[in-house]
């Protein structure tokens, strides 16, 4: 069980480092953490299969990783115009339709984050100059625009799934 201990320790350390970086950014009042998880199917005693999320630090190609960004208003005033910009991680492909975020407008980019648009509006020019709708795996960035204000002490989360190439 050493590895479990190690994982727990590392997770704690990660959380701690998250706190410390939040503290470093004390000028602001938003703290944001990003975590990576995977889903495991666990068969319960009654035979039911349960999807269980668990943090992941190591994985093989083909693994679908769920990234969740939690943003929390740790200040005393409400925050507005919150925009979360998340480049698709290296060696990963965005999974179509997987982006989530309550009360958010979710847009994507296929040009390194210069322009953002709805999935159906994103175009890629092929070698022959013909335009086609971009594929999910061609996305480079995801951007969430939080609608409304995030009151002091409140938090919310956005995220997506990406498969390791």
């Amino acid at each position: 069980m050493r590895i479990v201990n190690l994982l727990l320790t590392t997770t704690v350390l990660t959380l701690l480092s998250g706190f410390s970086s939040g503290a470093q950014a004390a000028g602001g009042t938003i703290k944001v953490t990003s975590i990576a998880e995977v889903e495991v199917t666990v068969t319960a005693k009654d035979g039911k299969k349960i999807l269980h999320r668990t943090p992941v630090e190591k994985a093989i190609p083909g693994t679908e990783v769920i990234y969740t960004n939690t943003f929390e208003n740790v200040g005393k005033q409400a925050a507005s115009n919150i925009v979360i910009n998340n480049p698709i991680p290296n060696a990963s492909e965005y999974k179509a339709g997987s982006a989530f975020g309550r009360d958010c407008e979710i847009l994507f980019s296929v040009d390194g984050g210069k322009k953002f648009g709805l999935a159906e509006d994103l175009k890629i020019k092929d070698a022959g100059g013909m335009e086609r709708t971009a594929l999910a795996r061609e996305y480079t960035h995801i951007r969430w625009t939080y609608k409304g204000q995030l009151a002091a002490g409140k938090s919310s989360e956005v995220g997506f799934r990406a498969t390791i190439k």
Partner: peptide, 23 residues
């Protein structure tokens, strides 16, 4: 593989320095 999110926001109408998450 590293994932980071960058957050920009305003407080009381004033833009705040963007924050980048721990990866």
């Amino acid at each position: 593989i590293s994932n980071t999110a960058k957050v920009s926001y305003t407080i009381g109408g004033a833009a705040q320095p963007p924050i980048t998450s721990t990866p």
